[in-house]
Write a protein that binds this DNA or RNA. Structure first.
Length: 221
DNA sequence: AAGGGATACAACCGCTCCTCG
DNA sequence: TCGAGGAGCGGTTGTATCCCT
């Protein structure tokens, strides 16, 4: 049972791509566009899985890729975006033209992680290392005050160009509320709108059935 | 010069999300 | 409304290269 494999594994190459394979892939995409990745390998005469072709094109062959070392500005931007978005590498990559999610993810794990650790900052939480748990307080009484602080903190990053508006969560929470934030660009929108009332998901999207616009975060990503 | 550990990054894997019939 | 299939994402692995002893 289960899903059929994305390709005939027995007849596909794996590992590093050869120059000839690259050339075939580039030529095919130039001629026909990206289209359906699943059928692309056969059409291009490649013994590769569609996923492999997609990855190779997106991360290495695309003509608009920047390549080369990350600048200090890019470093700082990645750190700021990661502190806001977490491991949402594709979203972070969207703010860095010419950089791919895979490239940023690798760069984070090899360089930035170490850089933050050397600064005494936890790369996961972006808090000082060895901060005792007792120092982290969870308060619902001062919630509004705390949200305003967060709002100010984020707005102090004008270089991120994130249009943000944060309001207190809706009071009457019930068990159906999710915890994990989900972001999605709405059609024709200037940014992302997160709904903190019903699902922490996209406001007025599939996951959001409320009309409480006061509990949203708009991220102009 | 050799070899062994560390590092960097390309590529793979498995899962979730999204779309469409 | 539901399920199948394709696309996309994030975590992990494999391997080439670098560096130190």
């Amino acid at each position: 049972m289960g899903r059929s494999p994305c390709c005939e594994k027995a007849h596909t190459n794996k590992g590093a791509w050869t120059k000839e394979e690259d050339e075939r892939l580039i030529a095919h995409i130039k001629a026909h566009g990206e289209g359906c990745w699943r059928s692309l390998p056969k059409a291009a005469g490649l013994l590769r899985c569609g996923k492999s072709c997609r990855l190779r094109w997106i991360n290495y062959l695309r003509p608009d890729l920047k390549r080369g070392n990350f600048t200090e500005e890019e470093d700082e931007l990645i750190i700021k975006l990661h502190s806001l978005l977490g491991n949402k590498w594709s979203l972070i990559a969207g703010r860095l033209p010419g950089r791919t999610d895979n490239e940023i993810k690798n760069y984070w794990n090899t360089h930035i992680r170490r850089k933050l650790l050397s600064r005494g900052i936890d790369p996961t939480t972006h808090r000082p290392l060895h901060q005792p748990l007792s120092d982290i307080t969870i308060s619902f009484v001062k919630q509004e005050e705390r949200i305003n602080e967060e709002k100010e903190k984020i707005l102090r990053c004008p270089d991120l160009n994130l249009e943000l508006c944060i309001s207190p969560p809706f009071q009457e929470m019930n068990n159906s509320h999710h915890v994990e934030p989900v972001m999605k660009r709405e059609e024709g929108d200037q940014g992302f709108t997160l709904c903190f009332t019903c699902s922490l998901g996209p406001h007025k999207s599939q996951g959001c059935k409320c009309n409480n616009s006061s509990s949203t975060v708009v991220l102009g990503l």
